[in-house]
């Protein structure tokens, strides 16, 4: 039944019946609502049919329509179908089987070969257009992907640049740690050495010799401090050399202690180690230390003045203190 209905829906007889239905409905509308209705129909083959059948009445109504420029509602088939489309969308909103792009229309069953050829041409044209559009959109998508990659690279460079300051900071931080950690270590070692030597001196030497040892301890410290103060202002490399020289100085000082143990109450022996210590350094500094050493040996009060000299210097002060404590060993 459905098949017959579909195949006969475009049958001329069926179309004629549909036209009769339209005329009948127009008649009913005009009677029930007491209005004037007219229908003008041109068939595919050009035949003209009207309702009402009286052409004069239809023409009069057509003329009135022509004269009337204020049209309340003039619906075109396109506009009417647009309304229907909106209704259909609302109607089929919740259904998943609604075909958005149908594969077939019933009208095509009744097309002539010529119409089908035209339809094929239209479809081929549309297919090529859509394929071009598809390629364009895909290429645009690829370009967007490339842009994303290009945007990622600068951020990577920024991260790299960010790492460099971090490394630099770490480097500075390590350098600061190295500088700070060495000084307390040296001080602690110096204290231990002082304790050891004091015990040793107390155990072996007499009271008079002990006093002489004290003088000997202080003199080389002061002279050495003055010798090294110019070097303290040098760069880190100079500081490293200074530390090495201090180690040599300590070694020499131990030798001094051995000589003292051999020679008792010998002032020449005391002065001789000083000269041997100053020889490795520059000659002018040696002279300075020698002169101060003799000055301090002659007068005890001047010794106090000599000890007050280190606080006067700002930067060398910390180094003098550490050197002094180290050299007292």
């Amino acid at each position: 039944m459905k098949q017959a209905s579909s195949s006969s829906s475009c049958n001329p007889t069926s179309l004629t019946n549909r036209l009769k239905t339209i005329f009948k409905k127009a008649e009913e509308l005009s009677i029930l609502c007491a209005i004037d209705v007219c229908v003008i129909y041109y068939g595919p083959d050009g035949d003209l049919r009207t309702w009402p059948k009286d052409r004069e009445t239809v023409k009069n109504m057509a003329l009135r329509y022509k004269e009337d420029r204020k049209r309340k509602k003039c619906l075109n088939l396109h506009e009417f179908l647009e309304k229907e489309k909106v209704k259909d969308k609302d109607k089929y909103k919740g259904k998943t089987n609604y075909v958005k792009n149908p594969n077939w229309y019933p009208n095509f069953d009744h097309y002539s070969p010529q119409q089908l050829s035209q339809l094929i041409q239209s479809l081929e044209r549309t297919l090529s257009t859509l394929q071009k559009r598809l390629r364009i959109v895909e290429s645009q998508k690829k370009q967007n992907t490339n842009l994303v990659h290009q945007s990622l690279t600068p951020s990577y460079l920024n991260q790299t640049q960010h790492l460099d300051p971090s490394k630099f900071s770490l480097y500075m931080y390590n350098h600061g740690d190295a500088t700070l950690s060495q000084l307390p270590l040296s001080a602690s070692q110096s204290n231990q050495l002082i304790n050891y030597q004091m015990q040793h001196g107390f155990g072996q030497n007499m009271c008079l010799d002990n006093i002489t040892n004290n003088n000997n301890f202080q003199h080389p410290g002061v002279s050495n401090t003055q010798d090294y103060s110019p070097l303290l202002s040098a760069n880190n490399y100079g500081l490293n050399n200074h530390l090495m020289q201090q180690q040599d100085q300590l070694h020499g000082f131990d030798q001094n202690l051995c000589m003292m143990s051999e020679i008792i109450n010998n002032n020449n022996g005391l002065q001789h180690p000083n000269l041997s210590n100053t020889v490795p350094h520059e000659f002018p500094y040696g002279n300075t230390s020698f002169s101060q050493d003799m000055f301090s040996s002659y007068d005890g009060s001047s010794l106090l003045q000599t000890s007050s000299l280190p606080p006067l210097h700002n930067i060398p002060n910390s180094y003098c203190f550490s050197d002094n404590s180290r050299l007292l060993c």
């Binding site: 179309l15 209005i35 004037d36 209705v37 229908v39 003008i40 129909y41 041109y42 068939g43 329509y65």
Partner: peptide, 8 residues
């Protein structure tokens, strides 16, 4: 097919 319907 062409058609026109007028109604007052």
């Amino acid at each position: 097919t062409q058609i026109a319907i007028l109604a007052t």
